[in-house]
Amino acid sequence: MDQFEKVDILLVEDNPADAELTMRALRKGNLANHITWLKDGAAALDFIFRTGEYAGRPEQYPRLILLDIKLPKVDGIEVLKRIKADERTKVIPVVMVTSSAEGRDITESYKLGVNSYVVKPVEFSQFSDTVAKAGLYWMLVNKTP
């Protein structure tokens, strides 16, 4: 079986420290079975829409996408826009996970149809809690039939 065959959670995060912390938090919440971590927006789009590097991937969509806003190449807002514009992917819950609590980002994200918006707290225990809860909630909502 290919490593991408069964993807539950897609994490798009350029900062490896944050990615590691996030994955640790998800793991602690027993959501770590199938996490795919990508480092930039372009890779995320390729992965989701099976283009470029991921052209050969079977047609299967993640059940939850955790998306940082500030990403290299294509930023999180753009990725969200593409996901929510496509009939095939727009039902996938997307949670914006970001360290920015800027009003314009929040407004823009909700306009584009984001399902949740999580500001990463500086303190690890809070961060861990928040990510785990958000992930769990949306995984439960979007159960595979």
Binding site: A17, D18, V122, E123
Partner: peptide, 22 residues
């Protein structure tokens, strides 16, 4: 600038805190 501060300065802090905790 404030956006950058908000976003970029907090990220390493979170790493420091998170990894100290780990």
């Amino acid at each position: 600038f404030t956006y950058t501060i908000s976003h970029d300065l907090r990220t390493p802090l979170r790493a420091i805190d998170g990894f100290s905790r780990i």
